[in-house]
Design a protein around this nucleic acid. Structure first.
Lengths: 106, 106
DNA sequence: TATATGTGCAACTATTTGGTTTCGCAAATT
DNA sequence: AATTTGCGAAACCAAATAGTTGCACATATA
């Protein structure tokens, strides 16, 4: 049962849930109302999101509010970093190509 | 058969492949040698990566070199942008919370 | 106390997925 | 021309997954 963030965000419904609760915590019922799905289905997704600590439940009376652990999202950003370096140097390479073309035209 | 980037990077082997070929194109056999898996398995992963245009094949004689489409990786970055705004303003909100607590204590 | 509401969890089903095996094709090597 | 090598595709299997249904439990409300 490997539960990592990348697997968590693979599902479009889960990505939608994440976006939905990013700004304010919501209950499973409230979340389900925003999609064409049942509360139980949302509940399952929330469980997966909770397991990999992307989401945090908070009991309030008989309701449970789920909020996004924004810090955890940074892990994806961190993984992207290795490629960000490449994007940036890719620009320089593009510069080289452009100047080479310029030279050839002469 | 929806193939999107998020589903593509959900698999740890595929993430490893992406990292591996990020700097230089490689053949399926060469990639497979880096993991505990068969060429056919890698081939399947490459197919998925190709389908969602994260990877580009280039035939060279009887070999096929696969390289990363770094531009496509930016789409993940783009999706993260909506949360980046939050984790930046979160600092300000933290300030607000702290001052609210201060008030209540009075 | 009786009832309604919000929730998680377990069981079940249909679908998807990762991996293996086998095959056929095309390019290289002998 | 015969053989080896690199490859993708199809068939198959075991495991995982998304969604549904039904249930039990706790908190609210009458």
């Amino acid at each position: 049962m490997r539960r990592d963030i990348f697997q968590a965000i693979a599902d479009p419904t889960r990505r939608a849930i994440i976006t939905l609760i990013a700004l304010q915590a919501m209950t499973p019922n409230a979340i389900a109302e925003n999609f064409n799905t049942t509360r139980q289905s949302v509940s399952k997704h929330l469980r997966i999101l909770t397991e990999c600590e992307l989401v945090k439940p908070e009991q309030q009376g008989r309701e449970i509010y789920y909020s996004l652990e924004i810090e955890k999202m940074k892990e994806i950003d961190k993984w992207l970093n290795q490629f960000r370096k490449i994007w940036e140097t890719r620009f320089n390479q593009l510069d080289n190509v452009l100047s080479t073309i310029k030279k050839q035209k002469k």
